[in-house]
Computed example of a mutant assay.
Amino acid sequence: MDSLPLVLLHAFPLDSRMWDGVRDQLKPVTIDQRGGDRSPDLVVIAEDVLAELDRLGVERAVVGGCSMGGYVAMALLRRAPERVAGLVLADTRAGADTDEARANRLAMAERVEAEGVGWVPDAVVPGLLGPHPDDAVVERVRELVLARDPAEVAWAQRAMAARPDSTGLLAEVDVPALVLVGEHDRLTPPATAREMAAVLRRVDCVELPGAGHLTPLEAPEAFAAAVVAWRQRVDL
């Protein structure tokens, strides 16, 4: 088992440390998604992932992501489908933003550039986690958010606002896929996960009890177990 590397891409507005709770079990390849001074397009992050795979000598990998990381996984699939042997899509969606969601992202980008990230945890953390999060998880998420560069937070919001609808892309994929979602995910709820799963041809869909939008942080053991069981089942 695990003959192919597993790439895991982090959620917004966090970094690759969000995967620390599953590293021992899943041994993932991770990167910090940074836009820098490049055009706000998630394809540039996908190209960074491809460059890291090239550096590691990896031809094909199982590619996964949580939330924004899922959007990057779809961008990578669009950019280089031949490099993707399987998909793990956690707490994410295939569709593009609504006009309202896009406007909210752009407004947040402007505010972060003007004020920094100090206000961001209070604004976003309650909506990211389930109804009864552990205090340690709350503090960890706040810590990761506060560590972010305001310019990168703004870049990520603009890149996500510009992303295309990937429903048609996923409908054409013929590799095994695992869709994971927290029972209490308010941003991409289980119904949204099921809609995305219905588009995929070869898919398993798992709902993780008690968790919200950040399943790898809130329920790392259950998340890792679901990925391991799926990989065994589909022989990846």
Rank of each mutant, 00 (worst) to 15 (best):
M1G: 07
M1F: 14
L4I: 02
V7C: 02
F12E: 07
S16G: 09
R17L: 06
W19L: 04
G21M: 01
V29T: 06
R34W: 12
G36P: 06
D37E: 15
S39E: 15
A51M: 00
R55V: 03
G57A: 07
E59W: 08
C66V: 12
M68I: 12
L76H: 13
E82C: 01
L87K: 09
T92H: 09
R93P: 00
T98R: 07
E100N: 11
A101S: 12
L106I: 13
L106G: 05
A107K: 09
M108H: 05
E110F: 05
V112I: 09
E113A: 04
V120P: 00
V124R: 05
G130F: 05
H132Y: 13
A136H: 11
V137A: 09
R140C: 09
D149H: 10
A154K: 01
S166K: 00
L169S: 12
A171R: 14
V173D: 03
V179H: 03
V179P: 00
A191H: 15
T192Y: 05
R194N: 10
R194A: 14
E195F: 01
E195Q: 14
E207G: 09
H213G: 08
T215C: 07
A226P: 04
V228A: 06
W230Q: 06
R233M: 00
D235K: 10
